[in-house]
Nucleic acid binder design. Structure first.
Length: 153
DNA sequence: GCCAACGTTGGC
DNA sequence: GCCAACGTTGGC
């Protein structure tokens, strides 16, 4: 099992929205960055877990955990001319944007803010703290466990 | 293939 | 709302 971090703007889609989607969860659509796409398409497996991170909001940070339930999904928004994520260069036969389905696992007991994460030397190599803008990113097992330890403090 | 112009992300 | 970082586009 591998670990990841998924960013979402809570005004658009929050962790609470994911919880409300119950067992069905949601298709992680709208990613239009190739590096993030490659991770979604090639690296993430069913059974992996991901931190759910709230970005572009008052208190950016990790708010919950989600589970990956399906991979290899053609991003439906990329084929929908009405969507702002529509990509005319993508087609069902030659899809450009492949993504995953996630469900809520559990909310963290408290928000672990970006500010707090920055204060820990053990996390200094985190992609989140070094390549700030990547919206889908790996988290090492050590980082994952360290952050879950912070939750209890 | 270089690189300037431009667009987007996201913290503050 | 500002702006740094960085990804994408397109002319040459």
């Amino acid at each position: 099992m591998k670990f990841w971090l998924l960013k979402s703007e809570p005004d658009a889609f929050s962790y609470n929205d994911l919880e409300n989607a119950l067992n069905k969860g949601t298709v992680w659509d709208g990613v239009r960055n190739y590096q993030a796409r490659n991770i979604l398409r090639d690296d993430i497996n069913v059974g992996d877990k991901a931190f759910f991170y709230h970005s572009s909001c008052k208190e950016p940070g990790i708010v919950g955990i989600c589970a990956i339930t399906e991979t290899g999904i053609i991003d439906p928004s990329s084929l929908d001319p009405a969507s702002k994520y529509y990509d005319p260069k993508s087609s069902p036969d030659n899809p450009r944007w492949i993504t995953i389905n996630v469900v809520a696992d559990r909310a963290l007991r408290r928000v672990i803010t970006l500010k707090e994460l920055r204060q820990h030397e053990a996390l200094s190599e985190m992609v989140l703290l070094n390549r700030g803008r990547l919206s889908v990113q790996p988290v090492s097992k050590e980082e994952w466990e360290y952050i879950l330890g912070l939750e209890k403090s």
